[in-house]
Every structure is written in structure tokens, then in C-alpha cells.
Design a protein around this nucleic acid. Structure first.
Lengths: 153, 153
DNA sequence: AGATTAAATGATATGTTATAACGTTTCCTA
DNA sequence: TAGGAAACGTTATAACATATCATTTAATCT
């Protein structure tokens, strides 16, 4: 299990190799997401950065930073929840083209999984018949996590 | 192909049989959604009702009406797009438990499809292994429709 | 080092989506 | 037709997001 610092270091190298910079403010946002282990809204992240790093970011900057981190594929936007989550593949060669996000509708916990290619192929067939095709394979799926399933029943 | 009026009539009977009422304002919203054939935001629906029916609804009422129509399963909320769409199964015995929504990220066109049970089963297995289970089988999938695929390439 | 330029960030305002709290109207039914 | 519930309106505000323009910071070149 990588520590947050190790992941951030890795992310910094990832950016450097792409000619971009993981600035301190960007690191603060990424660290906040990594430490929380769940999806956070832009405004929750503003609060986190203020508390943890005494870094009061305006909303504009936060959205810019989240946009940057998304483009670097270090963070994913979950549009179902209007929240943001750290990519779980930052260190492991960073292949996240075909990730799916399971989002607990109770506690917001997020798990990034990969469904089988055959399932994707099945889906694509259904979608193709309907006159559409996939824009991305980064699905978001509303779920209930085992923890919440126990406590809410 | 049912006309909008026929579908609204059917919806009215559906409500009556459940002891609820499809009021004029609720009909206006449903008609607007049916006629547009795509997903609309609450505020776009306010504009539609104002233009088509000279019925100026406040936001509070619109959200209440959308909530009512959702509970009656006449309308679905698309949380990825923050928009609302008429159920495509209002007339045909109205079974929409296992519907999936293909949303064109360019033109907002929405198609309600049903993926195969085997695909659902595959998905459930993957999700179960990750310590989650499905909250609903009403997935939302970001797509590009064939029309937009032609014009944007 | 100092000038130049591009990237990053800040400030301000506003747009968009959604809900809370409370008051009024409408409509069904006893 | 009185009473109560459902529907709807008013007002205010919360939560999420972006547009525009100004300023600061950092890399680069001489």
C-alpha cells in the first residue's frame, strides 16, 4: 500500500514527464483527495485545503486545479455525484481508460473497478443497436457498499 | 406511434388508478418533455411551460412536479446531466425497472434501452467482488448519437 | 542578474441547479 | 358546506460552476 506522499511523488514525476507541473496548490488538492479516500465536492475540497494546509483557495482556482488534475488523469470527476475522486491507478502504470466507478449512495465511498471486456462488448452491441455509441467507458454506477448495507438494514 | 395527447391520457389513467392526480400543471410539464423528445433541465422546462402554455411556474413548483412525476415513474431524472426525461414506457404496460439511459453528450438526446439480463449478471458479479451491490439498474451512459457522430466528424 | 513571456493564481461577479420554510389556494369528502 | 389534505406560490438561500479580467509566479533567454 502506497503512502499518500509516495503517490504524490509519483504523480509529480508523471506531470514532469508530460511537461506539466504539480504545484503546491495542486498537491494540496490531490493530497486531500487521497487522504479522504472518498469523493469530495469542490467546496468540500476548499474546506479541506483550508484546514489541512492553511491554503484558502477561491472556487475559481479549485475548479481550475480539478480540471488540471483531470486532464492529467490523476483525478476523476463523478458527474452523478458532482464530486471528485483521486484516480486509484496513479502508481500502477496509470492505465485508467476503462475504469468504472461504484459510488455508494449513502456514504459516497467510491471504488474504481474494471469490468470485463466481454461485458463492455455486450453493452456496446446493445448501445449500437439503439443508434448510439459509447462516449467513454468510464461508467458511474450508483451502488450501496457492504458497510452501509449492514448498518441500514 | 402514440401521440403526445394519447400518452398523457394514459398517464392520467395511470395516476387515477394509483389514487393520485395528474393536474394541469403536471400535464404541462409532462407534455413539454414528451414533445421535446430529449432531456431538459428544470429551468428549461420552466421556459417551455411559459412559452407553450403561458404557465409561469416557480422553481419550487417545478421541482415538486418533477418529483411527483418521478415517483409515478412517468419521468426519470438523469443525474449525470442534471436533466429530466419522459419515461418511454408510459403506455406499454409501464415496466421500467431495468432501464438504461443512453445520453448523447452533444445534443442531449436520450434513448431508454434495456440491456440483457446476462450483462446485468456479469456486472453484478464484478460489483459484488468489489464489496458493493447495485442500488438500481437504471444506469446512465454517456454516449454520442449517430446523428451527432456524423455532423461532428 | 534583469528583461521577457507564459503559466498559474486571485478577485469579482454571475449563472445554474436545487431546496428549506412558510403561506395560500384548490379540491375532495364526510 | 365545513374541514382537512393536497397542490401550489413566495421568498430566501444553499450548492455547484464558470466568465472575465487582473495579478503573481516561474521558466527562459540574453
Amino acid at each position: 500500500m502506497d503512502s499518500v506522499s509516495q503517490i504524490v511523488d509519483h504523480a509529480e514525476q508523471h506531470c514532469a514527464s508530460r511537461g506539466t507541473r504539480l504545484t503546491n496548490k495542486r498537491k494540496h488538492v490531490l493530497r486531500s483527495l487521497l487522504r479522504s479516500g472518498k469523493a469530495l465536492s469542490a467546496y468540500e475540497l476548499i474546506d479541506e485545503c483550508k484546514i489541512r494546509f492553511e491554503n484558502t483557495l477561491p472556487a475559481t482556482s479549485m475548479y481550475r486545479i480539478l480540471d488540471f488534475l483531470s486532464k492529467e488523469r490523476l483525478v476523476h470527476r463523478l458527474s452523478m455525484a458532482n464530486k471528485y475522486v483521486a484516480c486509484s491507478h496513479i502508481t500502477c502504470d496509470h492505465e485508467c481508460e476503462a475504469s468504472q466507478f461504484l459510488i455508494c449512495i449513502h456514504c459516497q465511498k467510491v471504488k474504481e473497478v474494471r469490468i470485463s471486456q466481454s461485458t463492455v462488448t455486450d453493452l456496446q452491441a446493445t448501445i449500437g443497436h439503439a443508434g448510439f455509441h459509447l462516449a467513454t467507458t468510464q461508467f458511474e454506477i450508483n451502488c450501496i457498499c457492504d458497510g452501509c448495507a449492514l448498518t441500514t438494514t
